[in-house]
Amino acid sequence: MTRHRWAATALCLVAVVAAQAKWPAPPVPSPIGFQSINDDRLSQLRRQAMQFVESRPRQGFQFVERHRDTEFQVHCRGVPVLWLERRSQHLLLRVSLDAEQRAPAVLQLGTLLQWQLQPLGHLEQVLAGVPEPVLLDWVLQVFAGEVPDRMRCGMQ
């Protein structure tokens, strides 16, 4: 009976890996934790992200506001590539692992936003529960392959 369970478990793992190779999930973002900010500062960062999108009208970018006072995103052809989320004790700025390939211009926006924020130290991030990128995320990104040209933004 034990051999059957091992065989069934191994078969399930192979099926999961094969399914991920055939239908890769959107890349997982790598979060970065920052000190909390006030509403005015968040509004300023929101405006910068909106200006980024508005200055590229035909490049496939969209500004998506999840919650006015807590979260906004920049999408590339419907796929999130940058998130800014205010939590109770800190701020998260995340950029998709495939942003360099999918939407290289969004990396500049991420850098601009980061430059204006005070990063949390490593211990502060751990204590605040800021999730860290995992090696598995990077491996899945490698297996996901190239982003098709029709799904890229900023290429004109």
Rank of each mutant, 00 (worst) to 15 (best):
D137V: 00
N38K: 08
P24M: 01
R56K: 09
G154N: 07
R5C: 06
R152L: 06
V126N: 04
D39M: 04
V130W: 06
V14M: 10
Q141E: 15
A19S: 12
L11T: 09
S88Q: 15
E85N: 15
L123N: 08
M151Y: 00
Q20R: 09
R86W: 05
C12P: 13
M50W: 10
E124S: 10
V134K: 13
R3Q: 11
S96C: 06
P133W: 11
V95T: 07
R77K: 11
E132K: 15
C76V: 03
Q44I: 12
P119V: 14
F61W: 10
W6L: 08
R87K: 13
R86Q: 14
L42C: 10
F143Q: 15
W83D: 02
Q59K: 13
F61L: 06
R87Y: 04
R41N: 05
V74M: 00
Q125T: 08
T2Y: 00
F143I: 12
Q116F: 13
L92V: 10
I32A: 09
Q48C: 02
P57C: 05
F63L: 09
F61N: 00
D69V: 06
L91K: 05
P57L: 02
V64N: 04
L135P: 12
V14S: 14
A25V: 10
T2D: 14
V79K: 00
V126E: 11
W83E: 00
P57F: 04
C76E: 03
R58K: 15
G121P: 06
T2G: 12
Q101A: 07
L92D: 06
V147Q: 03
A99V: 07
M1C: 09
R94L: 04
L112G: 02
L135V: 08
P24W: 05
M151W: 02
R94D: 03
T2H: 09
N38R: 15
Q125N: 13
L42D: 08
W83M: 00
A8D: 11
F72E: 01
M155G: 06
E132F: 13
F61Y: 11
W23M: 12
A103D: 03
D98H: 05
F34N: 03
Q118R: 09
L45Y: 05
F61M: 03
V126D: 03
R66S: 10
Q35E: 15
V106S: 01
F143D: 13
V134A: 05
W6I: 00
H75D: 07
L113A: 05
K22G: 13
L117K: 07
L93A: 05
W138G: 07
A49L: 12
T2L: 05
C12V: 14
N38V: 12
R46M: 15
Q101N: 05
G110F: 03
W23E: 13
P104F: 00
P57R: 05
V79S: 04
V95C: 10
E124N: 08
V134Y: 12
R5V: 13
Q156M: 09
Q89V: 01
V28Y: 03
P104K: 02
